[in-house]
Amino acid sequence: MLSQERRRIAALYQYPDGFLNVGWFAGYLRRKAGDGRHFQIQQTNLDNHNLDLVLRKYDEIPPQFHDLKPLRAICNLTGKIIGEDPVTKEPIRTVVATAVGFDVATVLDMPIDSAFDKIPVAGAPTTNFEDHGVKLFSGRDDKLSDSSNMVRLAGIIAATRFRAPNPEKGIRARCEILLRQKEDESQLIPVRYYGRLASAVYERVMRGAACEIVGRLLADVKRTGEPIDPETGIEPVRKIHFIECTTAPGVTTKNEIKVTPEWMVKMRQELQDSQRQRAEARARRIEQQKAALLAGGGSKQSPVAEVSDAEAQALFDTL
């Protein structure tokens, strides 16, 4: 676990594998039964949307942080495959946040009391903090503080996907990029953009580009289709964590990406080879079409009696 002294040196925890990778999450600690390495941070009264965090091996949560205690966790993030989509057959990816340090949360970090008044859907578990004797912080602004949930990442775009909007079903446009920081592609980090920004990002970014991401960690909660537990009244769900961004990817410098690993060099070389092959194929198609047009120029059935090389090239330049 990071000491206060080591926490002042960003390079010691913000650049695992040489790429900018850090998240700060503040809320109420929720301990989970089990091996003691898994816990949650609660930022609303909706339990299904708690942020799932994990400790590194041999680390422990400091004893002063008990259940429902306000705290702020410093984390590194990575991606993980947890299944396969039954329709698209693509991997289902989630974000794993690993805590490397803890701070006492301040009033500038904590979500305010209005965040704990959300109305749950049927079968969703909730926590009434007043029943636990917890005094929620009252603030003027309903917006979650940036220091309550902030993620900063830099890496290479490994893939992009776009989901078209469906207003009738209340589905917004979504662009998902998979950010790569490691050689192991099973650890790609899913980053999402919604609405108009989704279309703009999808049209602009491309595989192999380096970018910086500033966003927040959220939980996508879906029903599993299993029946509600008759004893607890809780409906089973599947939770996927992802990074949501409301601003476009930023340009990186040596301050965000400090290394050039072999897999990055190989990936960029493959992209350059692919681009060269596409350019060569396009040039061949143009030459074939030009030859076909010139060959047809002498035909009696052709409305063009003669076509010079310059005229043919000018014509193809307009295609």
Rank of each mutant, 00 (worst) to 15 (best):
E203R: 11
V205G: 00
D141T: 04
L188W: 08
K135E: 01
G225F: 02
D142V: 14
C175K: 05
A164D: 13
R204A: 02
V205S: 02
A173S: 14
I177M: 14
V121Q: 02
K143T: 15
K222Y: 11
G215N: 04
S148Q: 13
D142H: 10
S145E: 15
K135C: 00
V201R: 01
N149P: 10
E183I: 01
K118H: 03
A219L: 00
V191F: 14
E212M: 12
I213T: 07
E212A: 15
R207T: 15
A219I: 04
P190Q: 09
A164M: 11
A198K: 03
V151K: 08
A122L: 11
K118F: 01
D184I: 08
K222A: 08
I189L: 15
G170A: 05
G133V: 00
F162G: 07
E185G: 01
N166T: 08
D220V: 10
L136D: 06
A198C: 03
S186Y: 09
E183S: 12
V191R: 12
R180Q: 15
I156R: 13
A198M: 01
R223L: 11
T224H: 06
N166D: 15
I156C: 14
S148R: 13
I156F: 12
D146Q: 09
K135G: 00
G208D: 03
S148Y: 10
L179W: 05
S138E: 15
A198V: 04
R163G: 01
M150R: 13
D131Q: 03
N128M: 05
D117I: 01
S145G: 15
N149R: 10
G170E: 04
S199E: 13
P120E: 04
T160R: 14
M206R: 14
P167E: 01
R196W: 07
A158H: 13
E168S: 06
L217G: 06
E226Y: 07
D229C: 05
G195D: 13
S145Y: 06
K135M: 01
G155I: 04
L179Y: 05
S186F: 09
D141K: 03
P230F: 06
A154C: 13
P230K: 09
P230R: 10
P190N: 09
V214L: 09
K222N: 08
P227A: 11
G215W: 05
E203H: 08
G225S: 06
K143L: 15
D229W: 06
R216V: 05
N128Y: 03
I189Y: 14
V191K: 13
E130F: 10
D131G: 02
R140W: 10
E231A: 12
P227C: 10
A159G: 02
S199R: 14
M150W: 07
E130H: 12
L178K: 03
A124D: 06
Y202G: 00
A209S: 12
P120A: 08
I119P: 04
E176F: 04
L218V: 11
S148G: 15
L153H: 08
A209Q: 15
G208H: 02
H132Y: 14
P120N: 04
I156Y: 12
E185M: 12
N166H: 11
A198F: 00
R204I: 01
D220M: 08
Q181A: 07
S199A: 14
E203N: 13
R204P: 00
P125S: 07
S138D: 09
E176G: 03
A209Y: 11
D146Y: 05
I156G: 08
R163L: 11
F129A: 00
K222C: 01
P165K: 08
